[in-house]
């Protein structure tokens, strides 16, 4: 178990380093960087590589935003396997929804609870 946590730390950390290089070296904005990483995750799943990556790294692979692209593709592929082309359209949100729905729900709750503070970091 401790091994899994350490592996999640190392792999997750490395994924973030890739993001940082996109920030600092490629000079991409956060929005560009995150969009790119989601696309990478989705393409990797197309080659069937993301699931083994999750098997290996656990949260190191599911917590970075790349897993978003993976689960979107995965949902689409699962449905496509069952229902053919229609499934590509309908299966998309089959798997992913937790991240998006959590963000929406907690976003609204946060808007009710909090006000922004401009304190310096």
């Amino acid at each position: 178990m401790i091994v899994s946590v350490i592996i999640a730390f190392i792999v997750g950390g490395l994924v973030c380093v890739i993001g940082q290089l996109l920030f600092d070296v490629a000079k991409l904005t956060p929005a560009h960087t995150l969009s790119l990483m989601v696309v990478i995750g989705s393409v990797l799943d197309g080659f069937g590589l993301y699931e083994p990556f999750i098997d290996f790294a656990g949260a190191g692979a599911t917590i970075p935003i790349t897993s978003f692209g993976n689960s979107l593709t995965h949902g689409a592929l699962q449905e496509a396997e069952k229902h053919g082309f229609i499934g590509v359209l309908t299966g998309m949100f089959e798997v992913t929804s937790s991240g998006i729905s959590a963000a929406i729900i907690f976003g609204v709750i946060a808007a009710i609870l909090f006000k922004s503070k401009g304190k310096v970091s």
């Binding site: 699931e51 083994p52 290996f56």
Partner: peptide, 11 residues
């Protein structure tokens, strides 16, 4: 349970 380094081939 698969050894950590073999987990890529877990399935």
């Amino acid at each position: 349970q698969v050894q950590q380094m073999s987990k890529f081939k877990k399935e």
